[in-house]
Simulated assay, not measured.
Amino acid sequence: MDQQQFGNIKSSFTTHCLVDLLDYIYKNLGKRKTSVTLTFIGFQKAFDFVHHTTIITKAINLQLHPSLVSWLSDFLSHKN
């Protein structure tokens, strides 16, 4: 299992991920010529406003890797 996996693991919380992220940032900002750019995206509600078939069709048209399209489809249909 990936050491950076925090989701769907018993006794693992968002806080663990944030602490790990901050540790990584602080360690690397001490290096010369280093910068950090972060983007946080919450997908849960965003997909409630768009038809899921539209999202899947656009992903296919963008030629996303088939495994990513499959993951996206599973995510939208609430499969685990």
Rank of each mutant, 00 (worst) to 15 (best):
Ile9Val: 13
Val19Arg: 12
Asp48His: 04
Thr14Ile: 13
Thr37Pro: 00
Asn8Met: 05
Ser67Ile: 14
Ser12Phe: 00
Leu18Asp: 04
Asn8Arg: 09
Asn61Ile: 01
Lys10Arg: 12
Asp23Lys: 12
Thr37Ser: 15
His52Ala: 05
Asn80Ile: 13
Asp20Leu: 05
Phe47Gln: 07
Asn80Ser: 06
Ser12Asn: 14
Gly30Trp: 10
Val36Ala: 08
Ala46Leu: 14
Leu62Cys: 11
Thr54Ile: 01
His65Ser: 02
Phe75Thr: 10
His52Tyr: 00
His78Thr: 13
Ser12Arg: 08
Gln63Arg: 01
Leu29Asn: 05
Phe75Pro: 09
Ile55Cys: 07
Lys58Arg: 05
Ser70Ile: 15
Ile60Arg: 10
Asn28Arg: 12
His78Phe: 07
Asn80Met: 08
His78Leu: 07
Asn61Leu: 02
Ser67Asn: 14
Val50Glu: 05
His16Cys: 04
Thr39Asp: 12
Asp74Ile: 01
Tyr26Trp: 09
Ser67Gly: 07
Phe47His: 06
Ile9Lys: 03
Gln63Ile: 00
Asp23Phe: 06
Ile41Ala: 15
Phe40Asp: 15
Ala46Cys: 10
Trp71Pro: 03
Tyr26Glu: 02
Leu62Pro: 08
Lys31Cys: 05
Gly42Ile: 05
Phe13Ile: 10
Val19Cys: 11
Gln5Phe: 03
Lys45His: 04
Phe47Val: 11
Ser70Tyr: 09
Leu38Trp: 02
His52Asn: 04
Ser77Leu: 05
Asp20Tyr: 14
Leu72Cys: 15
Ser11Pro: 12
Leu22Lys: 11
Ala59Phe: 09
Ile41Thr: 10
Ser70Ala: 15
Ala59Gln: 02
Thr54Asn: 04
Gly30His: 13
Gln5His: 01
Gln4Asp: 10
Asp2Gly: 11
Asn8Ala: 02
Lys79Pro: 02
Lys79Ile: 09
Lys79Met: 08
